[in-house]
C-alpha cells in the first residue's frame, strides 16, 4: 500500500505536470482538488485516463471520480480493490 501511494504521487506529478510540487509535499490525506493541490476539471479527466491506462480500471460514471480522487489515500484504496493490471 505504501509503495502504491508513493507510485501514485510520482505519477500525479508527472502526468499532471506539477513541476513546482515535490513528492514529499503531498500528504496521503491532502485534498487533491480545491484548496489542496489545486487540481481542476481537466486534471480529473486525466486521472480517469490514468486509471484506465495504468491500472485497467474503467470508470463508467465520471461522477465516481469525486470520491475516488479525494486524496492519495482514497485513490490507493480504490486501485488496490479494483485494479485489473
Amino acid at each position: 500500500m505504501e509503495a502504491l501511494k508513493q507510485e501514485l504521487k510520482e505519477k500525479i506529478i508527472d502526468v499532471l505536470n506539477l513541476e513546482d510540487i515535490k513528492l514529499e509535499e503531498i500528504n496521503d490525506n491532502d485534498a487533491l482538488f480545491g484548496d489542496g493541490l489545486g487540481l481542476d476539471s481537466i486534471d480529473a479527466l486525466e486521472l480517469i485516463v490514468m486509471l484506465d491506462k495504468d491500472y485497467g480500471i474503467k470508470l463508467v460514471d465520471p461522477k465516481e471520480g469525486k470520491v475516488i480522487f479525494k486524496s492519495i489515500e482514497t485513490m490507493a484504496a480504490y486501485i488496490k480493490e479494483n485494479r485489473a493490471k
Binding site: 499532471l16 481537466i42 486534471d43 479527466l45 486525466e46 485516463v49 484506465d52 491506462k53
Partner: peptide, 9 residues
Amino acid sequence: YFPSPAVFV
C-alpha cells in the same frame, strides 16, 4: 488508445 483530455484541449 488513450486519448488525453489535457492534450486535446
